[in-house]
Amino acid sequence: MAEQSVVFSFFLIFTGAAIVASLALYTRQPLLVAYIALGACLGPYGLQMVTDTKLLTDISHVGIIFLLFLLGLDMQPSHLIHMLKKATLVAIGSSVLFFIIGYAVGFSFGYTQTECMIIGIALMFSSTIIGIKLLPTTVLHHRHTGELVVGLLLLQDIIAIMMLLFLYSGTGDSSDSETMIKFAKTLVALPLLILGAFVFVKFILLKLIQRFDRFHEYIFLLAIGWCLGLAELANLAGLSAEIGAFVAGVSIATSPIAQYIATSLKPLRDFFLILFFFSIGASFNLALVGLIAIPAVILALLVLSLKPIIFRFLLSHISESPAIGWEVGFRLGQISEFSLLIAYIAAGSMMIGEEASHLIQATAILTFLLSSYVVIFNFPSPIAVSDKLRRD
């Protein structure tokens, strides 16, 4: 794509986003809805004014990386370890239940066994972006509910990475032994990445920060370099860039400079996240709506209604209160951006057809929109409609 085309695309996206965001705020609607709707209108299946959605998706992925980095900056390592230990059974139990639900719905609508399995896998996860974007950074991140949401999302991300490795193994001629080697590499890479990050921070990064903390531009560049560097290292090691960015954040969370870095990077994060939600709307083929409308609506309603109930039930078994169980369940009441990636990879490797892929995409979009409405009308969030619930 030529440079002029990129600039023109950005003009359309951000000028359009400013207009629809203004309308959304006047009508008291969530901004995420506006960005996705704008993508559908301007994208290749709408007015065809923005056509290179792959480029936008690649660029917007940086927003997810920054989101996880900022999240890590707010997480104390000791609290995180405790929460991951506590939430493991809940994450596994909920994943199994939603796999069964997704498989059953796919089977009832006549999809193939492989397509049913992929649909089931797609329903296992909740959206890291929606879940964390709607968490108040100054309130819930320092409270039990926020730590529980984050712990569950991270555990789901780890499970999702394992599923993606399985799918990637189906895209080529990898033998069973090669697939096992990939899994082993991932299991070894994660603790090594964490250990290496903390050692580097202690002996190099913090010393650089202490020596040059008067130069704010340098601290800003150092933070971005550390975040993206560890994200890329994690990606090369067979993990995800998101996991690497989160580890990068946690590794400097105990430093006094962590909150300054978090405040500095928030505008950059929001810039890329607007692109992410726009690309979701732009990549959806509106011509297939008639074929997938009924199963997509059924899947979305099942996710929205059963996730709160299932999380409430499972969390009660680790001594969480009903109020916390319900709030966590509603905050995780959607499927994930990992689900979109799973649909893309499975369709690209011919494991599922275009219709099944778009079914997953439609379910993701519906649950993103509807769960956002549920959260912003009922729980504290930075974009809550009510002044009483708005917490940044």
Rank of each mutant, 00 (worst) to 15 (best):
L315I: 04
Q48A: 12
V250M: 00
H144M: 14
L135D: 06
G170K: 13
R28W: 09
S339A: 12
L302I: 06
A231Q: 00
L68M: 10
P322H: 08
I309W: 12
L190P: 00
C116M: 08
I19D: 05
I292T: 13
Q334A: 07
I342Y: 07
I130A: 08
S349G: 11
R391L: 15
R214C: 08
K207W: 09
I342C: 12
P267F: 04
V105I: 15
T367H: 02
I36E: 03
G196D: 03
F377R: 13
G72C: 06
K182H: 14
I342W: 02
M83Q: 13
H317L: 15
E217H: 09
F313T: 13
K86D: 00
E354N: 10
K266R: 14
A189W: 01
I383D: 15
R143L: 09
F11T: 15
G93K: 11
Q29S: 04
A34P: 12
S94G: 08
S22Q: 14
K133V: 12
S126T: 07
V105Q: 08
S279H: 07
D157K: 00
P380F: 00
F215L: 10
I360S: 05
S78E: 13
V188R: 03
I352G: 07
A231M: 00
T363D: 04
H141P: 05
I194A: 01
R211A: 14
S386H: 11
